[in-house]
Design a protein around this nucleic acid. Structure first.
Lengths: 187, 187
DNA sequence: TTGAATGTGTACAGATCGGTAACCTTTTTC
DNA sequence: GAAAAAGGTTACCGATCTGTACACATTCAA
């Protein structure tokens, strides 16, 4: 593999960006944390922004692959998988390294609608929405688009709440709410 | 009023922080945007962090006052007010200056659980949760805490989605979901 | 064996970061 | 009217920011 170091740079940079934030992470810190020299970084990526975009892309691939696989492992039918997705969220929340959703944070730090980082964050959310909408359709929901959106709201809300509100168990509450919404639409 | 300029400084700083983010807003930019000299700033606030905390406190007061008042104007009964709160969210989303929830962003930029800014962001969310839980109790919900949490999830999710997902109408979808959850618990 | 490609270390440029010192002007208060 | 509080101006500190220049080491393939 030629671009070996490059992949490792992106992998480690992703961890630091996720842990500390984007503006709060300087290139010098990345040199220390990744062990890759600054000169090499700027040979692979012309700007910090390009490195962030690469990290976000990797995060999207890793996260969605893990998420979809776990959902698939937990349940068989589309309806059950929609519910199981909230158990997967719960698993995520309990990881030590959990620090909220990287794409929500990216969209928050780069707010301009047409900023490449904001756009990429939005694309991830669209893919997650698509996943839910597809399952809703396969489950036979009356209005799959509406149900998909509503379940996405619950998921996003659960993620944000898991970060900020310690008095809640967002994964449990969201799962219960999702069950009610699903029953209401399938019955 | 003695601390007149101070209040105006906080008011304008709040706008800039909300628009551009915290790390992305330097004190020099604040000098230009607020018209207050840097020396004056540092006479009122010893650090940038103190200024951010003051801005967040003002935001909490302003936002909650506005939100609760609008909910009260739109409906009379607790159950109706729970639903109406999603219409108020919709009004917020359509403001030109809407840039998401300042406290979600604050919690995202300052992730350490015990960081003063993170703590203050969490307090705002707890107050919003309390508001919903109280209404749920008055509305006669079976488990007001659970319903309050679930409605909070929908609200937080709607805010995040309003920022990142343009193909949805989060306020409408969240309102419909809230109605289902409410009916399920009151019936 | 030569020569790209790919890597590193170091030093630096120019801007900006949060924060301060010293001095002057305006406004308020007694 | 004088003292004192508050605000402004200018210049600066050391640190850090993104990004670059240059010289040197490693790998690997023709």
């Amino acid at each position: 593999m030629r671009p070996n170091k490059r992949d490792e740079l992106v992998r480690k940079a992703l961890q630091v960006f996720y842990r500390d934030g984007f503006h709060a992470t300087g290139m010098d810190k990345l040199v220390v944390e990744t062990g890759v020299s600054k000169t090499s970084m700027y040979k692979h990526f012309r700007t910090k922004e390009e490195l962030i975009l690469a990290a976000l892309q990797l995060r999207d691939e890793n996260f969605r692959k893990w998420f979809l696989q776990r959902v698939d492992e937990l349940s068989d039918t589309p309806a059950e998988q929609l519910i199981a997705s909230f158990d997967v969220l719960g698993e995520w929340f309990q990881e030590d390294s959990f620090r909220g959703c990287m794409f929500i944070k990216a969209g928050a730090e780069y707010q301009e609608q047409d900023h490449p980082i904001h756009v990429q964050a939005a694309e991830h959310k669209h893919l997650m929405l698509e996943f839910l909408t597809d399952l809703a359709r396969k489950a036979g929901a009356r209005d799959p688009d509406a149900l998909g959106c509503q379940l996405l709201l619950l998921q996003e809300g659960a993620i944000v709440t898991a970060v900020l509100v310690k008095s809640c168990d967002p994964a449990r509450d969201a799962k219960a709410a999702a069950q009610v919404l699903l029953d209401n639409v399938l019955a």
